[in-house]
Each structure stands twice: as structure tokens, then as C-alpha cells.
Design a protein around this nucleic acid. Structure first.
Length: 697
DNA sequence: GTAGGACGGATTTTT
DNA sequence: TCCGTCCTAC
């Protein structure tokens, strides 16, 4: 790949702070990759002193693959299988978990007053909510409707992301609800530490606390002398502080900034971090990458026009050398069903075309893989020099929407036309009941303190242990402050339980004992299989669900076990711990065959790292997109607008934007006006969908 | 004390 | 529409 002049500057600025201001598809990842290659091959930087932080696992994986390829290394993607002498590349969360484990092997943190023990486990959003609910109802005895767990944990998350610990929270208490938040926070902190668990916020927050220790900080400053952060506009305060500490000694920090693509303020991403960066590194070299190598001129112009309605955007222009391309097609369907059908219809029609296009010399294009899916290897962008036969593929099509549940209607339309599709739903796999059940078994086996996991499985499959028994166990747990597992062991001595309950709990305890014993000599994949067999989990599923559904669930379990075989080479207990960590932090599943050809459906947020020849943005209506909860707030509205910008710039050649005049929504017919974002696209760049085609449907 | 059915309410985005 | 909670029957 040939870098342009500005990309060259970025590549060659090594021993100096660097700010890369990038726009959609300006090859920022390629530039970063080239920079790493340059550092290692020409500047002779030690590869293991390089730290690359990305925002998602997909991005990390892609970057790893690109860099490994440049360095002629063949290696898989597991962070623990990265050799010690290679750059460390990962998300904020995966890197800090890796480093926290490293730290816990070297230091005793209790001496530093930090409450974190070895073999901690990670609580996902769901575990966290369960914990919060439990605290609110039993410890604080609050009315759930008045104090929803979700809202309270949101306040706590906010506190953690502004470096506020529970004991300091009283400073910001200014209302009755925050008083309750404070109480909940204190108990939450205590319970999490008893369970030896970290939630996503804790991973970052604890890291920051630990790095404030000069000895530990110095060790990691020396270890990672060259730091790069992609998607810097999406970092929050705690992440900023961590990076600041690590980079403060050698000041070799490179960040990539793209404020037009900042769509994560709800995760406390703080755009002020760019001001902080400029203040901390006044000497920084600033490089602007403004040329877009992907989309047609028409699409880029339209996207520019939309985002320029944001008052807070800096004055800047994305431009391209690419051809003008076709106008954006606006579909205004009579109703929601037709909207979905038209999209399906267009895809069907496009599949019938097979065209020969002369690829222009000098135009960059993707090689044979113009699949957007990062699971498929991207060839670096080759220069096409000859005529080429272009065959339409289902995978040329990407359908985007604002929220996950919107996929259903489109799925139905695609199904009725026998169009293969795949919904990319990040959390879906690990959110499934059967997967969560089995993971909870693993967690409970691995960590006898994990109350949340125990509560999930103690009566799954049903063992006649109900809410009353659980309540009694809770009381005993609080009174004796023993691990949950020990309470179960001593259940005989609990007078408040009748004999039936006692023996039910006892047999559950014996089962878990058996699992724990098995776990010491069996790798995680085999252990999972053993658990499934021993529980007769299959019959349980068949009893609970329709046969078809149960079979689907068994397939998911197979997939889970299959995934676990990746850890067969480790020691049994280690394999459990690593596996649990991966499933907590990696939310999508690499189970898709590379040569599969299907239409891809996903939310706009998920699509941020993708591109596609033909993109459909559906449901572009006021109060859906922009989302109803952002209409009142100028700042949030601007974020929605940036989201529209992201959606539009996913398209390389063809962009369709659709809406319905009337749709069936929550049991009612609703009529939303067309989204303001559509009106912000200049008329000359847009054309209406021709409805006579409807007759063909 | 537990399991299963009826009813009511709430719906962003992800590590 | 789906999910979770409450209530009643066993």
C-alpha cells in the first residue's frame, strides 16, 4: 500500500507525541499498521514495547492480523497466545484484565490498600443488574418501581467513570435518590469484593487505582514505551487518565481522533479528552487525514452536509478522488411491511444482474474479498489494473437500523424471498439462556464466592429449591460471611429449613463438589460436556421449550463447547479462567464460515468498523432515528446525527435510505414524520424510489 | 414452599 | 411483541 504524504508523516513520527485527526475511511488503521511496521523494521523498536489500544475486539483482531502479516508471523488471535515478544494489541478492557492478572502475580495488592484478589471474575451487564436488584430489594428494601436497578447502576457507573469510590460518593449526593445510590454503591462495592468480581467499569477503575502506585507504574512505563490509541474520541475520563499515566514518562503516545464518529457518549466517552491531549502534549505533531478512499463523491457530500448541521463539529471537509457514483435512493414505503419487502426486493433484483465493469487504473479497490465482514481477511487494498468480472453477492448488502429489535421485520421479508442473511447481534450468543446457564456453572465451579452464578444455577434444572430456601441461605451468608459454597456445605445446620429443602441443597452441593473435582483434571471443553451430560441438560431443555427451540439451544451448546476447545492446551483450571474471561470480554462469535454468502443485518453502532458496496439504512424516522430519547437534548441529537453520518459512510457505492408512512409498533399503528436527517441531504444528491416496481413484489 | 399461568409494562447504542 | 413479576393452585 502506498501512503499519501500525510500518512507518511504519521508513520514517521515515532519518538514524539502524535495526534492523527482522521475521517471515515481515511485509512487510519492502515496508517497505524504501517507505523508499527516501520517502528519495528526500520527504527528497531522492540516489538514488545509497543501497546496498541482499540475500542472493540473486532478492531483489535483486524489490526493484529494486519500487523502479523506485515511481520510474516502466523499466529492466532488469543491475547494469551500472543508471544511475549510481539506488540500487545487489544481493547481497553482485555488489555487491562491481562495486565491486572500480571500485576496480581507479582504484587500483593492488599498491601497497597486495593481490594483485588487473584482469580477474579468478570460480571457482565446482566450479572451486575442481578446483583443490584438483589441489593435494592433485600438490603435496602426499596420499591423497585421507584428505584429501578438499571437507573441506580447507571449512577454508580457514572461515579466510577469519574473516579468516585463509594466512600467518596457522599460529596455528590444532592437528592433523595442519590442518597439511595450511595447506600447501594457501598453495599455493591462490598459484595463485589466478597464475590471477587469486577464489572466492566471496575476493570478500568481498579487499573487506574493500581497505576497510581509509583513502583507498579514505573514497571509498566518501562514495559510499554510506545503507546497507540485508536478511536480516541470514544475514550472516557478513566481511560484517559490511565493512558496519561502510562505515557507520561516516554511521551511516545499516538492517538487517532475522529470526532464525527463519536457515538459513545452514553458510555461516558468524553470529547474533552482531545482538549486534554492538546494540553498535555503541546508539542504533539498533528496530522489530518481527510481523504476518503472508499465511498463515492455523492455519498461523501451528502454525509458532509448532514453532519455540518452539528454546531459543535469543527470546520473540516472530507473529500475523495473517487467517482461521483449514483444518487442516494430514498424509499418512502406506505407501511413497515412494504418497507422491508422493498429492501428484500431490491436485493433480489440486484442479485440477478451480472455486470462487467472496467476498473479504473489508479482507483483503489478491494481485491476478491469485498466482503465487509472483518472475520474475513481484508486484502490490503490493491490497485485494479484490468477489466474485471463483477458478480453480485448477497454479502454486498448491508442493512442497518437504529436498534436491535428492528431486525425482525426485515428478517421476515428476507426469509420470504429465500435470501440468506445473518443478524450480527453482538451480545446475542452469550446472552442466551443456555449459554448463560453453562457459564454460570463454570463460574460457580471456578469461584466458590460467586453468589450471582450460584443463584442462577441452584435451581436450574429444577431441584425444588425455591425462593424461600434462597432467602434463608442469604440470611446465613450475611451472618457468617462465608463463601456461598461453604454455606451450602453446612446446610444441615440451618434450622430454618425443612428436611426436604436441606436434602435438595445438599445434593446440589454434592453435584458441585463433583464438578469441582472434575475441573481440576479436565480441560474446559470436556468439563462442559461432562456438565451437560451429568445434568441431563438436554431433557431439561426439551421439557422447558418446543422441540425445535431445544434443538437450537443444543446447537448453541455445541458451539460453546467447540469454542472452549481453543483452551485445551492449557492447564484445566487455567483453561476455565481464560475461557470465562474471553466470553466476558469478547461479545461476538467467530463461528461464521469465511466463504458464506449472506446479507448482513446489524445496528449502526455495530457497523462502525465495516464498509459495504450497498447499504440500506432502514426506519429513518423522527423518534426512531433520531431516537425518541434524544429529541429533547441538543447534545444527544448531535450524537444521533453523527450516527447518521456513520451509517451513510458505510456505503461505498450505493446507499438506500428508507422509512414507512405508517408502521405497526407495540401493538399500535404509528405515523412518524421522516427523519430530519433526510431533509438535511441536498435534493440534488437524492432520488426517490420508483414505486412501479412494487407491482412486481 | 414451589411451579406454572395470567397479567401488566417497557422498550438505544456496547466493553 | 416479549419479558418479567405477581398471584394462585398444587
Amino acid at each position: 500500500m502506498n501512503l499519501n504524504e500525510k500518512q507518511e508523516i504519521a508513520k514517521n513520527t515515532i519518538e514524539w507525541p502524535l495526534l492523527i485527526i482522521a475521517w471515515a475511511w481515511s485509512w487510519k488503521t492502515a496508517t497505524l499498521t504501517a507505523r508499527v511496521e516501520h517502528m519495528i523494521k526500520e527504527v528497531w523498536v522492540n516489538p514488545w514495547e509497543i501497546l496498541c489500544v482499540t475500542f472493540t475486539n473486532k478492531a483489535a483482531k483486524e489490526m493484529r492480523e494486519r500487523i502479523w502479516k506485515r511481520l510474516w508471523i502466523h499466529i492466532d488471535n488469543n491475547i494469551y497466545r500472543q508471544k511475549w515478544n510481539l506488540p500487545l494489541i487489544g481493547t481497553f478492557h482485555s488489555i487491562w484484565v491481562y495486565l491486572l492478572k500480571d500485576i496480581l502475580n507479582k504484587y500483593d495488592l492488599s498491601e497497597l490498600g486495593i481490594d483485588l484478589k487473584k482469580d477474579f471474575i468478570i460480571y457482565d451487564e446482566d450479572d451486575k443488574l442481578k446483583m443490584m436488584k438483589w441489593i435494592l430489594t433485600t438490603d435496602l428494601q426499596l420499591d423497585e418501581k421507584q428505584f429501578p436497578a438499571r437507573q441506580i447502576s447507571y449512577f454508580i457507573s457514572e461515579a466510577k467513570n469519574s473516579s468516585l469510590r463509594a466512600k467518596d460518593y457522599s460529596k455528590v449526593v444532592d437528592s433523595y435518590i442519590k442518597e439511595q445510590v450511595q447506600k447501594a454503591y457501598v453495599i455493591y462495592e462490598k459484595k463485589m469484593s466478597e464475590n471477587n468480581a469486577l464489572d466492566f467499569d471496575d476493570i478500568l477503575f481498579k487499573t487506574l487505582q493500581i497505576l497510581k502506585n509509583p513502583t507498579i507504574l514505573d514497571y509498566y512505563q518501562e514495559k510499554y514505551k510506545y503507546i497507540m490509541v485508536d478511536e480516541y474520541q470514544d475514550t472516557n475520563m478513566v481511560q484517559y487518565e490511565i493512558i496519561k499515566l502510562l505515557a507520561s514518562k516516554y511521551r511516545n503516545l499516538a492517538v487517532v481522533w475522529d470526532d464525527w464518529q463519536s457515538i459513545y457518549s452514553w458510555r461516558w466517552a468524553d470529547m474533552r479528552n482531545i482538549i486534554n491531549f492538546k494540553r498535555d502534549y503541546t508539542e504533539a505533531v498533528v496530522v489530518k487525514l481527510e481523504q476518503n478512499y472508499r465511498s463515492t463523491k455523492c455519498i461523501i457530500d451528502a454525509a458532509n452536509c448532514v453532519v455540518k448541521n452539528n454546531k459543535t463539529a469543527l470546520e473540516k471537509t472530507l473529500w475523495t478522488d473517487n467517482e461521483c457514483g449514483e444518487k442516494i435512493v430514498f424509499i418512502e414505503a406506505p407501511d413497515d411491511k412494504l418497507e422491508a419487502s422493498i429492501i428484500a426486493k431490491i436485493i433480489e433484483e440486484k442479485m440477478k444482474e451480472s455486470i462487467v465493469i472496467p476498473a479504473k487504473t489508479g482507483i483503489y479497490k478491494n481485491g476478491q474479498d469485498n466482503l465487509i465482514d472483518p472475520r474475513v481477511k481484508h486484502e490490503d487494498d490493491n490497485i485494479a489494473t484490468s477489466l474485471e468480472l463483477q458478480i453480485n453477492k448477497y454479502s454486498d448488502n448491508l442493512i442497518l437500523y437504529r436498534t436491535n429489535w428492528q431486525s425482525r421485520q426485515i428478517e421476515e421479508a428476507l426469509m420470504s424471498k429465500w435470501i440468506p442473511y445473518k443478524v450480527v447481534w453482538w451480545l446475542k450468543f452469550y446472552d442466551r439462556k443456555e449459554v448463560k446457564d453453562l457459564l454460570a456453572y463454570l463460574k460457580a465451579i471456578f469461584n466458590p464466592n460467586d453468589v450471582i452464578a450460584f443463584k442462577r444455577i441452584i435451581n436450574t434444572p429444577s431441584r425444588k429449591i425455591g425462593s424461600r430456601t434462597l432467602e434463608v441461605l442469604d440470611i446465613y451468608k450475611d451472618n457468617f460471611s462465608l463463601p456461598y459454597f461453604s454455606i451450602l456445605e453446612n446446610v444441615e445446620e440451618i434450622d430454618d429449613l425443612n428436611n426436604g429443602a436441606k436434602s435438595a441443597v445438599k445434593s446440589f452441593f454434592n453435584l458441585m463438589l463433583n464438578f469441582r473435582e472434575t475441573a481440576t483434571r479436565t480441560e474446559v471443553a470436556e468439563l462442559l460436556q461432562y456438565i451437560v451430560d451429568k445434568l441431563d441438560y438436554k431433557s431439561y431443555l426439551v421439557d422447558e421449550f418446543w422441540t425445535e427451540e431445544a434443538e437450537g439451544k443444543m446447537d448453541n451448546i455445541k458451539e460453546l463447547i467447540n469454542l472452549a476447545t481453543n483452551y485445551n492446551w492449557m492447564w484445566p483450571l487455567e483453561s476455565i479462567s481464560q475461557f470465562l474471561e474471553e466470553v466476558a470480554l469478547v461479545s461476538d462469535l467467530d463461528s461464521v464460515e469465511n466463504d458464506a454468502d449472506y446479507v448482513i443485518l446489524m445496528t449502526i453502532h455495530t457497523s462502525k468498523w465495516l464498509e459495504q458496496k450497498r447499504v440500506f439504512v432502514a426506519w429513518v424516522e423522527e423518534s426512531i432515528f433520531p431516537h425518541i430519547r434524544s429529541l429533547e437534548n441538543e447534545k444527544e441529537l448531535e450524537e444521533e446525527r453523527r450516527l447518521m453520518y456513520v451509517a451513510m459512510t458505510r456505503a461505498k457505492k450505493e446507499l438506500y435510505i428508507s422509512r414507512a408512512l405508517e408502521r405497526f409498533h407495540f401493538g399500535n399503528y404509528v405515523r412518524n414524520p421522516a427523519s430530519r436527517f433526510i431533509k438535511e441531504i441536498p435534493k440534488e444528491l437524492i432520488t426517490n424510489y420508483e414505486f412501479w416496481i412494487l407491482k412486481l413484489i
